[in-house]
Design a protein around this nucleic acid. Sequence first.
DNA 1: GTCTAATACATAAATCTCTTATGTATTAAG
DNA 2: CTTAATACATAAGAGATTTATGTATTAGAC
Lengths: 110, 110
Amino acid sequence: MHSPELLKGTLQTIVLKVLKDNGKMYGYEITQLVKELSASRIMLTEGALYPTLHRLEADGLLKTEVVNIGKRVRKYYSLTTEGKALVKDRVTEFVDFIKTMSVVLQVKIA
Amino acid sequence: MHSPELLKGTLQTIVLKVLKDNGKMYGYEITQLVKELSASRIMLTEGALYPTLHRLEADGLLKTEVVNIGKRVRKYYSLTTEGKALVKDRVTEFVDFIKTMSVVLQVKIA
DNA sequence: GTCTAATACATAAATCTCTTATGTATTAAG
DNA sequence: CTTAATACATAAGAGATTTATGTATTAGAC
């Protein structure tokens, strides 16, 4: 498990990017995918994820589609046009940040 | 300038590492070095830096030496034995985090 | 000579994210 | 039939940083 402090500020970027790569997904599915991709090093908590999804939707970056699975409700999220445009910027911003940090910390990122 | 959110959680690591690489330094000097190394992309604010230095000192990771420059006081910080041991871990932790993130975000860090 | 920017420290209130805790409900498995 | 997994949601508290403010010295510009 990674130090939760480092994760701060990356949650929106993670959500936007996995939605770009996988089309529509629902909240719980996102937590499982990120857990799998990160080999259990990043465990998104519901308390962080759902407010973030709501926020991104309110900001017009995500749109939702509610589907009934038996008696259970599943809420699918997908990127809006605006959201799609932003993903690239966010990912680029993160990569740039890493590059800067690798200089400051004098480490080589392989 | 990088998004300040991404910087969260990295401040201690930055401070510890530049002190390891440069021996003793004072607060203002750290802000200037980080600004230079990052091509002005990381600007440490005093409100964040000084409490962090005090915290690291209180935790026994840094030791201080006050020097009088004319009528001005300059407070030099350097790593304690404990601090030196921790730097490696913190840097490794950051690199590991980046590796995980590059998988989750499907980006290649060159 | 004097005004401004840079140097150099420091603290406190406000803000922003996220963690932790709690709540509800359905479905699958043992 | 009981527990774990699925699936949503919100709210209180914690923690790190920003923003604002304060003090004081020194160098440089005019």
